[in-house]
Amino acid sequence: MDTFEPVIVAFCCHYCAYTAADMAGTMRYSYPPNVYIIRVPCSGKVDALHIMKAFQKGADGVYVAGCLEGDCHFKTGNIKAAHMVAYLKGLLDEIGIGAERLEMFTMSAGMGERFARIATDFTERIRKLGPNPAKAGSDKTDKVAVG
């Protein structure tokens, strides 16, 4: 089981979280390579559908990262995103994927260190949870059994 490498999708808003991710790079804060960033203009642009599709396609964890509360470039996008994430968490519990696989984070553009820390902690969290149960079949477990 120790070979399980989760795939995590991070929807990052252009103005803060994506910039913070770049900042983590500038400052060489390392974090696990499991996190894949998708840039959106605002965390409020992240559609519930995008998140559910990500899980359907096989993401083991998803998070939305926006600006700090009050700092949203588009006034309230991050608040809307947080509401949407809270709602989806309930849904994920219901369908057996689990609320812990989805999270909303906020950070300012200067918080490269926070970005790296969140990416690290979240990867650890998902690693502990194991693979997304919605992933087609359980071929991974089979492989472990064989190997």
């Binding site: 959106v40 203009p41 409020g44 642009k45 995008h50 309230t76």
Partner: peptide
């Protein structure tokens, strides 16, 4: 202003934000 919040919230998916359309994100 191009934030795309309306596109995310539209239940009929009748709104697309140019440059960040749903099919591109998918």
């Amino acid at each position: 202003h191009g934030c795309g919040i309306c596109a995310a919230e539209c239940p009929a998916k009748a709104i697309q934000l140019m440059q960040y359309e749903d099919d591109q994100i998918m």
